[in-house]
Design a protein around this nucleic acid. Structure first.
Lengths: 219, 219
DNA sequence: ACCTGAACACCGTTCAAGT
DNA sequence: ACCTGAACACCGTTCAAGT
């Protein structure tokens, strides 16, 4: 045996593109997490020399941020029902959903909101809804910030748990609710008292928190 | 010249400890960010072989998480004025302050709340305040989650900006307010309308958001 | 008992060379 | 024009050896 696995066909010329590289990178990241992604792994999956990627992305970080922008964009159209409260709920629920579909990318999204092009469209839409609901500019701005950070923080923590489960049991594993309060809880009486609720379904928790914030805004 | 910089004294035996390693690691991280931290860098700063660290921490990650736990603990005592609303504000303001004092560690803290020992004491205290304010368990749990995620998300974004400024201008640079909305804002009318407010002082924004949430809780 | 240093299996990125 | 491959300067971690 001369070569373990000879490359059967030389990679044709016009094969590579930002599109293809991002699609492939997203596959790698969804399967093995950001930690499992490397330029060499990307090259291997495309049967291409790792350094060929540098023709389309200046650095690995630029590629990861393009991935994060995709996550923020999501696939669903922004809601326009005419009811600002319902549309706001839906907008942020969409953001949460997209983050949970790519849980391992959540930390990267959180490292740079809301800078990317995709984020700006979403930001503009949400602020429009808040103004439509009658909030003055300053209050709309604060409210947007509050809702965004709440959603990102919440989704990241849920995503962290989902990502850990995937790492253990593979991509289609059923995700169990967070427990992990453990033995030390007896030393923390208040914690123990609400433990069942803390471990509860995070989707419900997310929507309850959203209700809390929207009520405070009288929306 | 035989050796560029000969080690004058052999490192004495009992020198290393978790304490010393964490202190030194925190220095490195505060100066150069998490990206500038490596086992080799830690070894170099202590004039010690990098692999000696493995006697005290099983992995680099375990060391970083111990650092994150320190950040969550903070240096200030938890507030006990008897006024739950004031104490809640102070508790989360302390958490924000500690995150901003070590801005580059914020992403690591966010990757695993509230698991560490230090976090549990803070969690227990905050939930105690919410129950003291009269909230039933389920609502106290939701409220805590909301406040925590809000604070973490807010602080991380502010920390991200601070960290970027430090990387550019050194550890004592004055941090300018976030602007960065740029030319594209004209394509997003709602964004442009509130741009001044979005760029405003983040400390004030944080407290306004906190007020919003606490009001919703009728605290 | 505690620290060292060589070694292993990786990284991101650059750049001259091939086709 | 686009892709390759050798090379550079790094990583985290293991383990046998030194003191």
């Amino acid at each position: 045996m001369e070569t373990a696995q000879p490359r059967h066909t030389r990679t044709p010329r016009g094969t590579l593109s930002r599109q293809l590289l991002l699609d492939t990178a997203m596959e790698i990241v969804d399967i093995g997490g950001v930690g499992g992604f490397s330029m060499r792994a990307l090259g291997a999956r495309l049967n291409i020399d790792p350094t060929a990627v540098y023709r389309h992305f200046r650095t690995k970080n630029e590629l990861l941020e393009a991935l994060a922008d995709r996550v923020v964009r999501g696939d669903e159209p922004l809601p326009h029902t005419g009811d600002p409260r319902a549309d706001l709920r839906e907008t942020f629920a969409q953001l949460r959903g997209s983050l949970l579909r790519h849980p391992t990318l959540a930390p990267i999204v959180l490292r740079r909101p809301p800078g990317g092009e995709a984020s700006w469209e979403r930001t503009n839409h949400a602020i429009g809804l808040l103004r439509q609901a009658g909030l003055p500019d300053r209050q709309a701005s604060d409210a947007y910030t509050t809702l965004l950070f709440y959603t990102l923080g919440h989704a990241l923590t849920e995503a962290r748990h989902t990502a850990a489960t995937i790492a253990r049991k593979g991509p289609d594993a059923t995700v169990t609710p967070i427990t992990a309060i453990g033995s030390s809880a007896s030393r923390y009486p208040h914690l123990a008292a609400v433990a069942d609720h803390l471990a509860a379904d995070m989707r419900e928790q997310f929507h309850d928190g959203l209700t809390l914030i929207l009520s405070a805004l009288a929306i």
